[in-house]
Simulated scan of single mutants.
Amino acid sequence: MDVDRLLPTPEAADLIALTREIADKELAPRADEHEAAETYPEGLFATLGEAGLLGLAYPEEYGGGGQPYEVYLQVLEELAARWAAVAVATSVHTLACHPLHAFGTAEQKERWLPAMLEGREIGGYSLSEPQAGSDAAALACKAERTEDAEGRPAYRLTGNKAWITHGGKAGFYALFARTAPGSHGISCFLAPGETEGLSFGKPERKMGLQAVPTTSAHWDGAVIGADRLIGAEGQGLQIAFSALDNGRLGIAACATGLAQAALSAAVAYANERTTFGRKIIDHQGLGFLLADMAAAVDAARATYLDAARRRDLGRPFSRQASAAKLIATDTAMKVTTDAVQVLGGYGYTRDFPVERYMREAKIMQIFEGTNQIQRLVISRGLSAAPAK
């Protein structure tokens, strides 16, 4: 069932209508097959790029959509309601574009950003390492100054990265590597996907989101040009954390879309299935369960939109982004679990999509910072708040 949205402009309403049309035609019919077979949807992201859906939150002058974040996130939610893996990869691509847009020079942006925002190159975000997940300051992948074969300034990259969405498929990676000791010794690079000395591990065998690969990466002395340093040396953590606030909102929107899909499936089933002479939705015990599910999805949506609107107004939104990610992903886990319960035995089978939704929901509580990390961010925000 379609969500009744409050959108800021007629243009935004048209964009949502376009997104629904594309998602219903290109995503929904293919999701079950690709997820079951664990096969990558070749060409699909090019289609989304051609429709202008991969650069919505960025300026039109670089090929983006020039949309406020509250609109971009609702587009993301619509994609997630049809195919969560594609929506998550879209969110990660948007996240990977942030360092260049926010910290790159004018020359760097003119050179690389249009291809990224138009979807001609899909991006990956490479921050985590096998021993450094939520503790980003502990990363060990090194970037050492050197020269390339033509004697131009360059960096040599050595080390391992982990949990890369679109690993091995992306055209570029927002890569974070150590250029000096300490937490102020981390730098950000726009690394090409095809670089000699870069290799990827086998895709992780995941519980869900199986159509888009998640891999490790190994940088074996790979050399990239010094012009691919984004921002200043040592500015990496600042760049990473500024991007993660945006990424958490993206995951909140994806989680809300996934929860909405589970709710819609459960409501449809409850309106068709009859017991004791009545539709099961008319039995109070089940009707109240569905009501709680609907209220939770509405609350998750309202929470991520509040954070997005703060961002659009230029107000601080870090605590609100963490709250949105926490609430929306916990909601997705609860609502998808309850959707399986509504369908009973059928919900436990792969003949109905709620089984897949429940598996997909779990990772939402883990990536872009676990929900325990979100609670830490929120609590720190409270301890820093002035007393009134």
Results as ranks from 00 to 15, higher is better:
residue 324 A to V: 05
residue 278 R to L: 11
residue 312 D to L: 11
residue 334 K to A: 14
residue 293 M to F: 00
residue 287 G to V: 00
residue 333 M to Q: 01
residue 279 K to E: 10
residue 304 Y to T: 13
residue 293 M to K: 02
residue 289 L to E: 14
residue 309 R to H: 00
residue 300 A to T: 03
residue 310 R to Q: 14
residue 323 A to N: 03
residue 317 F to R: 07
residue 308 A to P: 13
residue 296 A to K: 13
residue 333 M to D: 10
residue 294 A to Q: 12
residue 330 D to I: 00
residue 326 L to I: 01
residue 311 R to F: 03
residue 322 S to Y: 05
residue 309 R to N: 05
residue 283 H to E: 12
residue 324 A to G: 03
residue 334 K to R: 15
residue 327 I to S: 12
residue 300 A to K: 13
residue 336 T to S: 14
residue 313 L to Y: 13
residue 335 V to Y: 00
residue 290 L to D: 02
residue 305 L to H: 01
residue 317 F to K: 13
residue 289 L to A: 15
residue 294 A to D: 15
residue 307 A to C: 09
residue 280 I to N: 11
residue 319 R to I: 00
residue 337 T to H: 12
residue 287 G to W: 03
residue 319 R to D: 04
residue 314 G to F: 03
residue 284 Q to A: 12
residue 335 V to C: 00
residue 283 H to M: 04
residue 323 A to V: 06
residue 334 K to M: 06
residue 317 F to S: 14
residue 280 I to D: 05
residue 336 T to F: 04
residue 286 L to S: 09
residue 323 A to S: 10
residue 331 T to S: 12
residue 316 P to G: 06
residue 302 A to P: 06
residue 314 G to D: 02
residue 298 D to Q: 06
residue 321 A to C: 11
residue 308 A to Q: 10
residue 304 Y to M: 00
residue 284 Q to V: 07
residue 328 A to L: 12
residue 325 K to M: 07
residue 321 A to L: 01
residue 301 R to F: 05
residue 320 Q to H: 06
residue 310 R to T: 04
residue 307 A to K: 05
residue 315 R to G: 11
residue 313 L to Q: 09
residue 310 R to C: 09
residue 334 K to S: 13
residue 334 K to C: 08
residue 323 A to H: 07
residue 286 L to P: 08
residue 286 L to E: 08
